[in-house]
Simulated assay, not measured.
Amino acid sequence: MHTLQKCWNEQPALRPDSSNLLNDITNKMDTAFNHNTSFFDNILHRVKKYADALEDEVYNRTVELQTERKRCDELLCEILPRIVAERLRNGGKVEPEYFESVTVLFCDAHGFETHVVDLRSPVAVTGFLSKLYFAFDPVVKGFNAYKVETVASSYLVVSGLPVKIGTHGNEIASLALALRKAFTLDLPISTLDVYFMACLGPCVAGVVGHVNPRYCLFGDTVNTASRMQSQSLPGHIQLSAETADLLRSVARPAYEIKERGNIDIKGKGLQTTYWLHGTSTAKLP
């Protein structure tokens, strides 16, 4: 830059002649390159430095890409069951599947619509639901169960799919006890409480949608659990007769189960249900 400035001098006498200009350029090239090696070796050295810098840049960008891909995979596994997410990520199809025996659990904060939505601001309602889900979600992860969806204050969990296991009844029973314990939010509405209902039976599950895919459950077991849950009592865990029979047949843990009696279920008629009170050896989250 200094050489160019001298060439641009307004006084011709102060401008370098061709001989001085050539010497100046040669000196600067000797400074830039190693004058003990040939010009070609210096070019190779510069190319190698550039290649090394490019290799480091490619490595750093690859690490960033892998990190972002891992985050995307983790997010996808939050939306869908891991085995389903991995199948979709690898380009496979997830066909609807029939499951002969699963146990579903419905939880609902009764009084939410009348006492929370009508009396509190939208920001407060959102905050309440966030606290409720933040309290429940870590508990569910401690069991072999999958949170299917949340609609307002309703919370649906299932065990026994997409990976079939024979202990799905135990998982849901112990999970229900743990969720009831986790519901310790300091709410200003004293009438708000959580109702639980566990129901065992067959269902069909599959991925619905492409833009915003969801893993959904269909079948009479889900519908029956939803209807029975609405007739539970605050803080109580209600069981269908099939669920109670399954839990009684299991030696460990020994659940404390009591018959509630017959209740009229819409579309099903009179159904005998039971209360799950607890167990001294229930699985902890």
Rank of each mutant, 00 (worst) to 15 (best):
F128S: 06
F128A: 01
L129V: 00
L129Q: 10
L132K: 09
Y133F: 12
Y133H: 05
Y133A: 00
F134I: 06
F134K: 15
A135E: 08
A135N: 11
A135D: 09
V139P: 11
V139H: 10
V140R: 01
K141V: 01
N144H: 13
A145Q: 11
Y146W: 15
Y146P: 11
Y146E: 13
Y146A: 09
Y146S: 14
K147S: 02
T150H: 06
T150K: 07
T150D: 01
V151Y: 15
V151P: 05
V151Q: 10
S153I: 03
Y155L: 09
L156Q: 02
L156G: 03
V157S: 11
V157P: 11
V157Y: 07
V157N: 08
V158P: 12
S159M: 01
L161E: 07
L161I: 09
P162V: 14
K164C: 06
G166N: 13
T167E: 13
G169L: 00
N170D: 09
E171W: 01
E171R: 04
I172A: 08
L175W: 02
L175D: 03
A178Q: 12
L179D: 00
R180M: 05
R180E: 04
R180S: 08
K181W: 11
A182P: 13
T184W: 14
T184I: 09
D186P: 10
L187H: 14
L187D: 07
L187W: 15
I189W: 11
S190V: 14
T191W: 11
L192Q: 07
D193V: 01
D193Q: 14
Y195T: 02
F196H: 12
C199E: 06
C199K: 07
C199T: 05
L200Q: 15
L200S: 14
L200H: 14
G201D: 04
P202Y: 02
C203E: 03
C203G: 04
G206I: 06
G206T: 10
H210R: 14
V211D: 00
V211M: 03
V211T: 14
P213W: 04
P213L: 02
P213F: 04
Y215G: 05
C216Q: 05
C216G: 07
T221P: 06
T221D: 01
V222G: 03
N223F: 10
T224Y: 12
A225D: 02
S226K: 04
M228Y: 03
M228K: 03
M228Q: 02
Q229T: 05
S230D: 08
Q231P: 05
S232W: 04
L233T: 06
G235P: 10
G235R: 11
I237N: 06
L239A: 10
S240H: 13
S240F: 13
E242L: 15
T243L: 08
A244L: 04
D245T: 12
D245K: 15
D245C: 12
L247S: 02
L247G: 03
S249D: 10
S249R: 14
S249N: 15
S249H: 14
A251I: 08
A251H: 13
R252N: 11
P253V: 11
P253Y: 06
P253W: 12
Y255T: 02
I257M: 07
I257T: 06
K258C: 01
K258V: 00
